[in-house]
């Protein structure tokens, strides 16, 4: 037997697939956003409101990744946005191969922005590049302001942090300033948007950022 030295990171094959997908989406003019959060943090509610608010300004598509069911995709398609449900068959994250399969399964896709709603989990999705152009994470008020301390990688990897369910702030011991400070300590460049998709508070700032990132991405071409 011969010994072959490799020193390759385990995610090498995925990293290459992700880079290839990112380039292909660029040529198709599709801006892909990997949306990550814990289960029940309000990903689908945030997207529903964002889609409704941006109707006429930008076409949004959604790939819902869940271990099972299609309840989220049904909610999104009710808003007139193109959506597809992906099942990860028990896997805890979406990788570049799955993201590609999702994009290819969306026939006649006419979206400027596609959100990949990753599996609800703050750990594994942070480690796998999906080929997305931006990474956005959600932290909801009921989850607590200590999450940056517990799941640092997710906060380090994300371009933006949306703090959802701010209408529930009066009922929880959630220190908004502490959450912001902890996230910024891990990632000084992260953009933070406290929002309530229910009341609409803060949604404009988040949506403006989204549109400006889309424009910046188009200019980079």
């Amino acid at each position: 037997m011969k010994v072959i030295e490799l020193r390759r990171t385990v995610t090498d094959s995925n990293d290459r697939d992700a880079e290839a997908l990112r380039r292909e989406l660029r040529s198709k003019g599709i801006f892909l956003i990997n949306l990550m959060s814990a289960a029940g943090s309000g990903k689908t509610t945030l997207l529903s409101r964002t889609i409704t608010d941006l109707t006429g300004k930008v076409d949004i598509g959604v790939m819902e990744a869940d271990i099972a069911s299609d309840v989220d995709a049904v909610r999104i398609s009710g808003l007139g946005a193109q959506s597809i449900q992906m099942h990860t068959d028990g896997m805890c994250h979406v990788d570049a191969g799955m993201a590609r399969a999702g994009i290819e399964a969306m026939e006649d896709l006419k979206a400027d922005v596609v959100f990949l709603e990753n599996v609800g989990n703050l750990i594994c999705p942070a480690e796998f590049d999906t080929g997305a152009h931006r990474k956005v994470m959600i932290l909801s008020v009921p989850e607590g302001d200590d999450k940056p301390l517990k799941y640092p990688l997710m906060f380090r990897e994300s371009d933006a942090l949306v703090i959802t369910k701010t209408d529930a702030l009066p009922y929880f011991d959630f220190d908004l300033d502490a959450a912001k400070r902890r996230a910024l300590a891990l990632n000084p460049d992260i953009r933070i948007f406290p929002v309530s998709a229910k009341t609409g508070e803060g949604m404009a700032e988040w949506e403006d950022w989204l549109l400006s990132e889309l424009e910046a991405w188009k200019r980079d071409a």
Binding site: M1, K2, V3, I4, E5, L6, R7, R8, T9, V10, T11
Partner: peptide, 11 residues
């Protein structure tokens, strides 16, 4: 880190 350092292989 999490990487593949080396393999023993038969060619």
């Amino acid at each position: 880190e999490f990487s593949i350092k080396q393999i023993e292989a038969e060619l």
